[in-house]
Amino acid sequence: MQKNKNTIFDDENDDKLYILSVIVENKPGVLFRITNLFRSRNFNIESITVGITEKPDLSRMTITTVSDVKTLEQLVKQLQKLIDVIQINVLNKENAVYRELALIKMNAKDPTTRIEIANFASIYRGNIMDISNETITVEIIGTPDKIDAFKNLVSNYGIIQVARTGVSALPRGAVNDHL
């Protein structure tokens, strides 16, 4: 049995964003084994998120990486070799729903600045999470591109802190995991 049921490898040699949705055993040491693999095999990772799935003994890791097809293939194969890895789906922008959450804290001493930022936030369907005399903190949910765009937009005000969750993703359409 091969673990990757619907891998999407195309012919391009160019670097592209891939989203790996990886089902792993939910037990201690698994995250360590996976991150250690990235380090020892020299793979570059953009983000990694972990959370429990619909089954309590399984976690879903979402890993995003920008790479060419050959490197991606090695990454998938090396991940598959790990005994705690149950299944891997290679997703991309087209066949997945994917979201990231970011918290962005900005300088906002001036009341008009606060109003401007609040306006931008509502255009981006963001939420104001905290507001003080000095700062304003906005929550943005969306694709990494959308979060980057918002960051650019507000960069003039002075960004003080950013916390991003990394991408979480699921394949679109019918469920094809048979676990």
Binding site: Q2, K70, E73, Q74, K77, Q78, Q80, K81
Partner: peptide, 8 residues
């Protein structure tokens, strides 16, 4: 026997 050796 090791799929990861193919093309490595």
């Amino acid at each position: 026997v090791d799929p990861a050796e193919i093309g490595k």
